[in-house]
């Protein structure tokens, strides 16, 4: 393969990649239409990261494997805000008690409430199309 062909193909790919990246960054997300993250929820996100909740928990099936997916813990039947608060406050045999104060826990709840509104995980309702693609949660 001549050098110039390699250079052209590489250059073409890279420029396409830059344009593509721009479109990914600016593509629609469900939360555009709904409410934005409150400052309280933003603080909650920071606490979530600082305590490495991701090492055990997932959002949208991404993260750790020891604990349950927390995307919809706020709206799940039999769970919800009070349950979540109590669990974070006490910890369990597997989940440490992080000794967070009331304010921090409220922020975490605000964050989880926000996440809950953005979508559904794990996928329970779905339909599979003949091309192998899937309609999620419809």
């Amino acid at each position: 393969m001549p050098l110039i062909a390699k250079q052209i193909y590489f250059g073409f790919l890279f420029i396409t990649f830059c344009i593509y990246s721009f479109f990914v960054y600016t593509s629609d997300t469900p939360s555009d239409a709904k409410e934005l993250m409150t400052t309280d929820a933003q603080a909650g996100k920071v606490i979530y990261q600082q305590n490495n909740c991701f090492s055990c928990h997932q959002l949208y099936g991404l993260g750790g494997y020891m604990g349950p997916d927390l995307t919809n813990v706020i709206s799940a039947p039999g769970k919800g805000e009070i349950y979540t608060k109590a669990l974070i406050m006490s910890g369990t045999q597997k989940m440490p008690n992080f000794h967070l104060n009331e304010q921090e826990i409220n922020s975490l709840i605000a964050y989880l409430k926000y996440v809950d509104k953005t979508g559904v995980s794990p996928t329970i309702k779905y339909s599979i199309n003949s091309d192998g693609s899937v309609n999620y949660n419809q």
Binding site: V24, Y25, T29, K45, L59, Y60, Y114
Partner: peptide, 15 residues
Amino acid sequence: YFRNNVVREITVQWK
């Protein structure tokens, strides 16, 4: 812009 939108954040993170 990324941090305050969980869906965008996750998408870009995994990209």
